[in-house]
């Protein structure tokens, strides 16, 4: 019977494997391949510079922005890596949230070779999925710290100037 045969075969194989301990995969062909994929690494940190560790992450695919495509959490450094499905070009949305804080990052993914680019205005290279740029939800991230400092200083000066103007008017 095939069952017995296979049992015996398994027993034999087990014995063989025990004997040839150093070569446990002798008879099994392995096919290794590779395909370059573009992964996206999301970096989440608070504006104090502290990483958003173990924050919850939900990825929404472009074709169904209501249903979560993937759920995960960031690691201790506030990093989260995922590989968008190249067959779904468009804007992938990654929502990160912890204790009511967080935001949404939009990751534009261009189509893989031969597929049409849907709702993608920036140029796409051929061959693999292309992920362009890094968007951030906070406007302040686009400025250097000096620029931000000057802007904040200008705002504070605006408040003080208003105070001075109306204080002068009283006298």
């Amino acid at each position: 019977m095939t069952y017995q045969k296979s049992t015996r075969l398994a027993a034999g194989l087990a014995a063989g494997a025990t004997l040839a301990w150093a070569l446990p995969t002798l008879a099994h062909g392995i096919v290794l391949g590779y395909e370059p994929v573009n992964s996206v690494e999301i970096q989440a940190h608070y504006d104090t510079g502290e990483p958003m560790a173990a924050a919850q992450v939900v990825v929404y695919a472009p074709d169904d922005p209501n249903e979560p495509w993937m759920q995960s959490t960031t690691d201790a450094e506030g990093l989260f890596t995922f590989t968008p499905d190249a067959s779904q070009p468009g804007n992938w949305e990654v929502m990160i949230r912890q204790a009511g804080h967080g935001g949404i990052v939009t990751v534009p993914v261009a189509a893989a070779n031969g597929e049409e680019v849907v709702s993608e205005d920036s140029g796409a290279d051929n061959g693999t999925a292309v992920i362009q740029g890094q968007t951030d939800t906070t406007s302040s991230e686009n400025l250097s710290s000096v620029q931000q400092g000057i802007a904040i200083g200008a705002v504070i000066w605006g408040f003080i100037g208003t105070a001075l103007f109306f204080a002068r008017g009283k006298r």
């Binding site: 705002v155 504070i156 408040f159 109306f166 204080a167």
Partner: peptide, 21 residues
């Protein structure tokens, strides 16, 4: 308008306060 100087200065304080952790 008499209270605007006070209000304006405290707005500045409020604006800065959220950066103090």
């Amino acid at each position: 308008t008499a209270e605007i100087p006070k209000a304006s200065l405290l707005t500045a304080a409020f604006f800065v306060a959220s950066s103090i952790y």
